[in-house]
Design a binder for these strands. Sequence first.
DNA 1: AACCGGCTCCCCCTGGCGGGGGAACTGGTC
DNA 2: GACCAGTTCCCCCGCCAGGGGGAGCCGGTT
Lengths: 214, 214
Amino acid sequence: MIRVVVADDERLVRLGLRAILDAEPDLTVVGEAANGAEVVSLVRELRPDVVLMDVRMPQIDGIRATEQLTTTLDPAPRVLVVTTFENDDYVYEALRAGAAGFLLKRARAEEMVQAVRLVAHGDSLLFPNAIRQLAAGRRAPASAPSPTDRLTEREGQVLRLMAAGLTNGEIAERLVVSPETVKTHVGSVLAKLGARDRTQAVITAYESGFVQPG
Amino acid sequence: MIRVVVADDERLVRLGLRAILDAEPDLTVVGEAANGAEVVSLVRELRPDVVLMDVRMPQIDGIRATEQLTTTLDPAPRVLVVTTFENDDYVYEALRAGAAGFLLKRARAEEMVQAVRLVAHGDSLLFPNAIRQLAAGRRAPASAPSPTDRLTEREGQVLRLMAAGLTNGEIAERLVVSPETVKTHVGSVLAKLGARDRTQAVITAYESGFVQPG
DNA sequence: AACCGGCTCCCCCTGGCGGGGGAACTGGTC
DNA sequence: GACCAGTTCCCCCGCCAGGGGGAGCCGGTT
């Protein structure tokens, strides 16, 4: 069970996020905070796996709160910065502060859920699809790390075969290893991509451009 | 078990197709023919589900053989015309003759297998991806029917939710029906798309453009 | 030498998935 | 009225998928 704390000064936003996350069987919102000071003490108390952190908040802003949490807690919670993406600067400041990634408020519920799973399971620094696309639309900043980047060579091979529609047994034959080994690799792929099953993994493979239609 | 007859005047081509098809647990090549006369009598005798028919063959060409089979047998076998696609005319002649679809010799094994399952399960007139793309590259002929076209409205909704990574139970909640109903729709989608499982169905959804990345 | 990441294989176990049936109701067509 | 396609729901069943462990081997790093 992935435990989440939601921090946003707007009650409606907190409600919306809670509705989306609590609908998932493997996610639970254990607490809400309305400002930066509140979230810091709440997270110290509840020790959630993931914090959804709004940038603009009273008292202590999201960036400073993120910095406090990631530098003073061990293990540090994974912080997802919730943003409307009006301002580029937030991105780099948030990363410096130790944020694990970003969440666009206008993103689809599925994307949000997957992003939460992603940072909870893996430890990757990620730009969710929507952010990547917006960023690419303006000017490519540094490069756009995809969750598929963290896959090992073998895991990448396995994902490609998953995206070709093969079963574990067929992948095993193709790679000339045992089905158990394939299961191990598939498990690693699912964890690194934040996917619940092979179908979601294949979807991520398409959405991230790891494989292309046609 | 889908029973297939392979008709091609080149022995190597027959061997290659047999190797690809017999590797699938649900497919079996029950006979081979080297010319048009042979395939007609062989199919009358064996009554396979699917015939892979080369266009250029001695004695009776693939088109004429297709016409004889589809007009004189009941139930008629599903004929997939195997082609290298040098000549546009074959396409329309084959369709008039009752062919169920086309198979590019240079297509990947997975595409071939899926095409066979597709015509065996469904009864749709289909252009495999490779053909569709080549055709679109020249000039769009009439329109390019996709296997997703035959889905009912409800099945299309279900496929879209499958392609969003939802489980049957989650789809049931979203559509406010029972999980059993979703299972029925999913089963129909798999049959119509020639997919073995939901992962392959989602792949087809992306490959056919039914859903787009991004 | 000790360590770690990547790859390999094994166990047990649960649950969702998919195939096989069947059956009822709707609305539209013949 | 008979028929059919589409949608809905139900049964049983086997299988693969995915999570939980653990463990050994290799190669490069510290």
